[in-house]
Nucleic acid binder design. Structure first.
Ligand SMILES: [Mn+2]
Ligand SMILES: [Mn+2]
Ligand SMILES: [Mn+2]
Ligand SMILES: [Mn+2]
Lengths: 221, 221
DNA sequence: CGCGGTATTTTGACTAGTCAAAATATAATT
DNA sequence: AATTATATTTTGACTAGTCAAAATACCGCG
């Protein structure tokens, strides 16, 4: 079995390469995994040895198909566990990520299958992120329309929260901007850097432009 | 935080000392933890250093109060998780121990509290073992009456399955001898070493005398 | 008492991860 | 083109756990 360290490395790489055929740098990984760059270099060489990723010296890494499958399995566990914690155990939306970070390494395939059944095979987690299926296919990375680049005064629906930081999630929670919420953008003020929108049950919410880019939406009929 | 290795050592000691003020030998621990005796000696010295247990050289170990509290916390997680897996996720009764062995180290206090609420604060796990409460008190080790030493032809109720081995649990499952089941002992045959009992909905079941000693019962009015 | 058998402890070595700090390669500036 | 800044890699050292095998202590027994 892959250790939880290996699982964390592979998942971190997956999250930073999926979509774009990017290569991830040592520095980015060191930052993400909260270790020193030299540690990443060492670890990455070991993982390349095991055929889980490709490493071009002084360039970066990219997952092999074997590594990608393994990472997708971990991501599936992470997101299903998050969904379970929120929906079944009624845990706070903004604290489940941390919990899932540990549980993703302890939940077996057997337990995961039961959780998946129990939840009725959900396709997205509480943040709106897609849950990979058992075979490792992820629902297509839908075009990323956010509050920043969407049409004004059109009925919208929050699809996904891109920033996972607890503080931002807390704000989203408070203002009711969670995935599924209805809203429309009233106006953008490039000068002041503020965007105003009307959230369905909540009322008017103002947020900074960079923050607006963290909320993905889809137009609703 | 205590590592999962430390948690496993302390829990193993607790399970072999609770009740009797026993001291546990290195050999027994090595067997239980599936490591070589020299490893236990090394580890035990480190744990004694941290004040989690007392170690008399060439004699054995006993938990300190700090160690006992820590071990009780792990045991509580283990048994609540087992209960959750069986009751909520409908997992097979004979496979949850193995799962709980891993999850007990990954479930936080926060998640555990939610599980406890969700289940309505159960006091025994699916095997009939008592679940320590939040403050670390365990329901008194009730007198151990088993099928071996109970009265004949009296209405009984299965209280606890003492042997946790998958094979035995499988047998118990099959014959309906699970905790809560009603039964009475029809006769014991010391000569053949077989005991016959009548299980409430199931019918007559025969089991060996050593096996009979693994099923704790309580008389029912 | 002395001897053999068993359990325990020591010793030396190994793996997985990690860090600090020095060495090196690459990219960006003057 | 030479110099500087930045990112990466190396090196040496450390921690937690573990095993194999040798050394040691303790037990009961003749
Ligand atoms: Mn998450
Ligand atoms: Mn993780
Ligand atoms: Mn168990
Ligand atoms: Mn365990």
């Amino acid at each position: 079995m892959a250790t939880s360290t290996v699982e964390n490395y592979l998942k971190a790489i997956l999250l930073r390469t999926e979509g774009s055929d990017h290569i991830v740098s040592m520095g980015v990984l060191a930052e993400a995994l909260d270790v020193v760059p030299g540690t990443v270099t060492t670890m990455v060489k070991a993982l390349a040895e095991q055929g889980l990723l490709d490493h071009q010296s002084r360039q970066g890494v990219r997952l092999t198909e074997a590594g990608r499958q393994l990472a997708l399995g971990v991501l599936r566990k992470h997101r299903l566990v998050e969904t379970f914690l929120v929906q079944t155990l009624k845990m706070d939306w903004s604290e489940v990520h941390e919990e899932a970070e540990a549980l993703e390494h302890a939940v077996s395939e057997r337990v995961l299958a039961q959780i998946d059944d129990f939840l009725g095979h959900p396709t997205t987690d509480p943040h709106g992120d897609p849950i990979p299926d058992v075979n490792g296919s992820v629902a297509g990375g839908a075009a990323s329309v956010t509050l920043l680049n969407c049409a004004l005064n059109q009925p919208l629906c929050v699809a996904r929260i891109i920033d996972q930081s607890p503080a931002f999630l807390e704000f989203v929670q408070q203002t009711g901007l969670k995935p599924g919420a209805r809203l429309q953008v009233v106006r953008r003020e490039p000068a002041s850097g503020v965007l105003h929108c009307e959230v369905r049950p909540g009322g008017e919410v103002a947020l900074g432009l960079p923050e607006a880019g963290k909320i993905a939406v889809r137009s609703v009929s």
